[in-house]
Amino acid sequence: MTKVSVILAAFNEEKYIENAIRSILNQTLTDFELIIVNDGSSDNTLNIINSFKDSRIKLINQKNRGPGACRNNALDIAQGEYIMYLDGDDWYSRNALEIAYAEAKSKDTDFTFYQMINYDNDTGRKYENDWFSLKIFDESYENTVFNIADFKGSIFDLSVGVCQKIYNASFLRGIDARFPEGIFFEDMPFFYYVLLKAEKISIIKKCLYYRRKHAESITHVVDWKFLDTVPAGRELFRIFIENGWYDAYKFDLLAYKINGPRFALRDIKENYKIPLYELIKKDYCEIKEGPYYQDYIDNLGPVKKKFFLDIIKSKDYDDFKTLNQEKSSPP
Rank of each mutant, 00 (worst) to 15 (best):
L172M: 06
F184T: 15
Y167D: 02
T112P: 03
V145L: 11
E139V: 02
F179S: 06
Y114M: 08
D187V: 02
D138V: 04
F151T: 09
E142R: 09
M116F: 14
N168R: 14
L172V: 04
V145C: 12
K126V: 01
A102P: 00
F111I: 03
S159T: 14
E103P: 00
G182D: 05
I136C: 11
M116N: 15
Y119I: 15
R125D: 11
K105I: 09
T144W: 05
I155K: 10
I175R: 06
D187C: 06
R173D: 07
Y141W: 05
R173W: 04
K165Q: 13
D157F: 03
I117R: 13
L196A: 07
E103D: 12
D187M: 05
T109R: 06
G124W: 02
N147S: 15
T144S: 13
F132T: 11
I148W: 10
F151K: 14
I166A: 11
T109N: 08
F184M: 12
D176C: 03
K107T: 11
Y192H: 10
G182T: 04
I175V: 09
D110T: 15
E142L: 07
E186S: 12
G182H: 08
N118E: 10
D187S: 07
S170G: 09
Y167G: 02
Y127T: 08
D138N: 14
C163F: 02
F171Q: 03
D176M: 02
Q115V: 03
N129T: 14
R125Y: 09
N147A: 10
S159N: 14
K107R: 14
V160M: 05
V145N: 12
